[in-house]
Nucleic acid binder design. Sequence first.
DNA 1: AGTAAACTCCGGAAGC
DNA 2: TGCTTCCGGAGTTTAC
Length: 284
Amino acid sequence: MPELPEAETIVRQIRPSLVGVRLGSVRHVRADVVRGGSAAALKRTLRGARVRDVSRRGKRVLIELDSGDGLVIGLGMSGHVSVCEARESPAKHTHLRVPLEDGKRELRFRDARRFGGLWLLRGHDQGHAGFKLLGPEPLVIELAEFRRLMCRRRQIKALLMDQASLAGMGNIYCDEALFRAGIHPLTRAADLSSERVRNLRRAIRRVLREAIAAEGSSVNSYMTAEGRPGGFQFKLRVYDRAGEPCTRCGAPIERIQAAGRTTHYCPRCQKNSEFKTQNSKSES
DNA sequence: AGTAAACTCCGGAAGC
DNA sequence: TGCTTCCGGAGTTTAC
């Protein structure tokens, strides 16, 4: 599932093909995949526009135009972005095709499950555009601000996954960061000691940087923009490893529900004192 | 107000 | 082969 490292990988790969390039007329767009703005407005905005930059916000890809407008691509859980040969026959579930000015290549967006989508950003509402405001970037946030975030009473896992609190963490990297920080996923954020908060921020930064270096995790259908699988799935320590031995202590990794999500953790390495941990209803 | 849970969208994968 | 079930990012709704 594409999260911050996967989005970052896609951005790095398509950026060189797009920056400074003029877009042609939208060749195909599936109307109900356009969630911010209309398909007609999207066509009008993209046609003839020059790409100023390609960047990432949280787990979303942002294509900024010289006009000041922009296109946000949300990847959902099965979204794929690529710049490919225009004559290449489009894969199933391709919802957006935008030719580049050379006419030989195309920007494409494909998303089988359609949990992702497209948002048109008008110059004046950068950051909003129909979807909830995003929280700070986990690789940028300073310790003091991170501490303020952790003052809430929510479960730490729910808080980390909430895009309005922190932008870019999903199920995989949440579990991995909590493991590295030795924090039980059901702990209330406000109950974390000062030292644990500092460790958690460091664990988040490390796991995200390592995952970016490996071009993301291919656990389901994720592929880089260049069509290759990432490499970080081989370095996951708890995610999708229920029953397998902990890489640190050997205890079997457990799977529970937290914040409505499948959650993996080591019961020995991520043990918080009892009064700091909420009881799980669905321990398996 | 803050938190949490249920429901919704959808198709691939797994299980029977 | 064909059915049913499960899963999830995130918005919305509902309930404490």
